[in-house]
């Protein structure tokens, strides 16, 4: 129950952040900050994969409606949600994955956490931007978009995970 409440709050905060702040930033053509990937990335590791998939789907559809992107967000976040267990296995190892818990620096260690969220964001950005352009004419542009957006998203995800792990003053 406590978990459901906490993640419900995270869901709302992340949507507000993405829609009201980051979608309006328009830094430049290369960097699109995707803070919403944090929601799926920070789900507990022991959560059944069907729930991860469905929550990723809900998040993707919400973002598509707010960004008017016609399904690219859904495609990307569905894929990352489905492959999350493989990404975790690859970056943090089977033991930690089986033990469960919320992915955080404290739980995984700094290096493994960085590896995990970098791969997570990278996969998301590759799918998002290659589908958005759908041509090889501006390859260098797409690659640059992927790199820049991954970097900024990793940074944001890091902050979100730190804020999310912070013990609330009022324990529920």
């Amino acid at each position: 129950m406590y978990y459901a409440l906490k993640y419900g709050l995270l869901f709302l905060v992340i949507i507000l952040l993405q829609v009201l702040l980051f979608n309006n930033l328009d830094l430049n053509i290369y960097t699109s900050p995707f803070v919403y990937v944090a929601f799926v990335a920070l789900l507990p590791m022991e959560l059944a994969s069907i729930y991860v998939l469905l929550l990723g789907f809900v998040m993707g559809v919400t973002m598509d409606v707010s960004m008017l992107t016609m399904g690219i967000n859904t495609i990307a976040s569905l894929f990352t949600a489905y492959t999350r267990s493989f990404i975790l296995e690859l970056t943090v190892g089977k033991e930690i994955l089986n033990d469960g818990g919320v992915p955080s620096i404290k739980r995984l260690g700094f290096v493994k956490m960085v590896r995990y969220i970098t791969l997570f964001c990278l996969i998301h950005c590759i799918i998002f931007f290659s589908l958005e352009t759908l041509s090889f004419q501006y390859m260098y542009l797409t690659v640059l978009q992927i790199i820049c957006s991954t970097l900024i998203s990793v940074l944001l995800l890091f902050f979100v995970s730190i804020a999310f792990q912070h013990k609330p003053i009022l324990r529920l």
Partner: peptide
């Protein structure tokens, strides 16, 4: 609302 950073901006 106005975006400029997407490929399809509205």
């Amino acid at each position: 609302n106005n975006t400029i950073a997407r490929q399809r901006n509205y």
